Simulated scan of single mutants.
Amino acid sequence: MKVLIQDFLLMLQFFTRLPINLNLTCEKENFKRGTMFFPLIGLTTGFIQWITYFLAIKVLPDSTTALFVLLIGILVTGALHIDGLGDVFDGFFAFKGKDKIIEIMKDSRIGTYSCIAIIMDLAFRYNSYINLINKEFSLGIIAAPVVARTIFVLLFYMGKQAKKVGTGNLFIGNVSKKELVVSCLLGAVITGLLLGLTKALVITAAAVIATLLFNKYCEGKIGGLTGDTLGANNEFVEVITLILAYSIKL
């Protein structure tokens, strides 16, 4: 049990900016076991955003509350996945071949496509938060990161490594059926409790389809997945979940 708790904390250290100042073991096996807790990483992020909404909406207008929810999400994650989204758009729209695409994705500078992608991502999120607040489907704020982090594990399981060396390789191809099943069951339970079974099933199906298509697209462009493409998929799935959470009437 102690090892599992440490692996969960390791994932929190890795994927959030929460102040967990512990010296934890960082072997490949720790990252493998840690993937089982990805839905809980999403739950932690989403819950912090939801608490922000719950407190802010009492004294602030909907639009300002939505901005704070958006900002808190960025601060908690350190914009890790948004950065990946921007890098992917810069690289994939370069039309230069696999090696050049990966080189562009590694560049710390951002280009036009990256700027557009990030702006649109934030705009969709902001609009979705306002709609969730107005329609009183606020638990979608929590559900979005839960679904996205659960889908991460599916990508780890079925994806191929596009690079020989990279942060994403700590996870890509480093997941067995055990971790996949545990994370999916955990994610399904949490999402079902938040959104209701029917809506959760529809959203999960949409997220899986989008992820399968994106994975296939990545294989065609660069031969597999990198940390940046993982981050981009996270943003796609979160936005899809947010939109469907308020637009589906069940």
Rank of each mutant, 00 (worst) to 15 (best):
A207P: 11
G97E: 01
L24S: 10
A207S: 15
V202Q: 03
D83Q: 06
I118E: 05
C218D: 04
H81W: 07
F37P: 04
L122K: 04
T35S: 15
K100L: 06
L43Q: 04
L213N: 04
D121C: 15
T65Y: 07
T35K: 00
G78F: 12
Y157D: 05
S108I: 05
Q161M: 14
P145T: 12
C218H: 11
L18H: 08
L180E: 08
V189I: 15
L43W: 05
I222Y: 00
Q13I: 09
A188Y: 07
I48C: 00
A143I: 06
N30W: 00
N30E: 05
I51K: 01
G84I: 01
V146A: 02
E29H: 12
V181Q: 02
S128C: 13
L230W: 04
F137A: 13
A79I: 08
A205I: 15
R109I: 06
M105T: 10
I151K: 01
G73T: 09
N169M: 11
G196H: 10
E27N: 15
S114D: 03
S114L: 04
K96G: 07
L180S: 13
E235R: 12
S108N: 10
V146N: 02
E235A: 09
N233F: 01
G227L: 10
D87C: 09
Y217H: 13
K58Q: 14
I172F: 01
Q6K: 15
A94C: 09
S114R: 03
I20E: 01
I203K: 01
L242I: 11
K106L: 10
C184A: 15
G223L: 12
C26L: 07
F31G: 10
I172H: 00
N131V: 03
K178F: 13
G86H: 03
F31R: 02
G73S: 07
N134A: 10
Y129L: 08
K249C: 05
A144Q: 11
L242K: 05
L24Y: 12
I248E: 03
G223Q: 08
